[in-house]
Design a protein around this nucleic acid. Structure first.
Lengths: 178, 178
DNA sequence: CTGTAATTTCTGTTAAGACAGAACTAGGAG
DNA sequence: CTCCTAGTTCTGTCTTAACAGAAATTACAG
């Protein structure tokens, strides 16, 4: 498959940014390619198009499947696995956020709960001076609230979220710029 | 400065998670330490407390200052620089989000605008088939809306944001679970 | 059961980042 | 002007991750 200049720019950029987003270049490029592709592609096509080793493609596809944004699609009369990316950007964003939450905040939330419980129980005797306790309580409060907010927003349908985002200004006014 | 077991756990965890958040272990640990510390600390204290080289501390402090969540604080009668972390978690989160937006989404937003303009101008002749154009338009729409939403939320005061987050359920109901 | 195509896993190499210690620079104090 | 002390930057080492190519495994066709 030949990439048009437009596609190439997008693929290259996605690979570049991928590194900032915590995924590697190849994974980013493959995702970009599959997102743009009008039909599922097999591993060899992907490798040829991007000019990377097939082993690399195999590993990267697995990671994308772990993230839950790429899945196997079979093509009639073809033994090979084909792969396609989720196309709905909103749904995709949701899936990615879920995964990141699981990896990047859930463990911290859990630890903060434990530390706060410990600080409460142990009291100042266990070396938990008031200042530290306050800092830990603040941080826990923040993580708890963000988690709650996310889980509630998570339940909204895509059109509802979009509608809600578009409201923007009005929401701000409703809750005051105090 | 001796760390209590509680502080130690927090510092270690922050260093660990730092890597998932895209900062390195030492940077994470220093931030955790300064966040808990009741008073500004100098570079040597930090190095001794955490058991890392001073050069490493110097570099890490610079990065934290770049992020905008740590600043220099001078102590009367002491020539050395002391450092303190922002303590308000909400404000800190805002600063971090601003920085991440700048690094992780602004460049992509800009590129998507360019690509979409190109696709429109060039038309199918320039190799921009309808499917690709739609994908790029979708992605741009998503980034535009998220950016707008963020910039509006950004303006709200901390108490307003907290109030708003706590509403949770009600907001979802207002905009329908359709 | 055998051969072949597809895919994954393994292995060695390369590249990038983290880090300690040394060298260097700046800025007083005497 | 010289001596310290604080701070930064440089240099080499070490660790980790990315990756290509080879080997191994799996799955199917005949």
């Amino acid at each position: 498959m030949e990439l048009t200049p437009l596609m190439q720019k997008f693929v290259l950029h996605w690979g570049e940014m991928g590194q900032r987003w915590g995924i590697n270049r190849t994974v980013g490029q493959i995702h970009a390619l599959l997102y743009l592709a009008p039909r599922p592609m097999n591993a060899e096509e992907i490798a040829d198009t991007l000019g990377v080793a097939r082993s690399n493609v195999s590993t990267s596809l697995k990671e994308l499947q772990n993230w839950g944004i790429v899945r196997i699609a079979h093509v009639m009369g073809d033994r090979r696995d084909h792969f396609e990316s989720m196309k709905d950007v909103w749904e995709m964003f949701r899936v990615i956020m879920d995964e990141r939450k699981k990896r990047e905040t859930d463990p911290t939330l859990q630890l903060l709960r434990e530390l706060n419980a410990e600080a409460k129980k142990g009291g100042a005797g266990a070396g938990a001076d008031p200042h530290v306790r306050e800092r830990l309580a603040d941080m826990l409060g923040f993580f708890e609230l963000m988690t709650t907010w996310y889980e509630q927003t998570r339940k909204m349908s895509t059109p509802a979220v979009i509608r809600f985002c578009k409201l923007g200004d009005k929401v701000a006014k409703m809750f005051g710029v105090s």
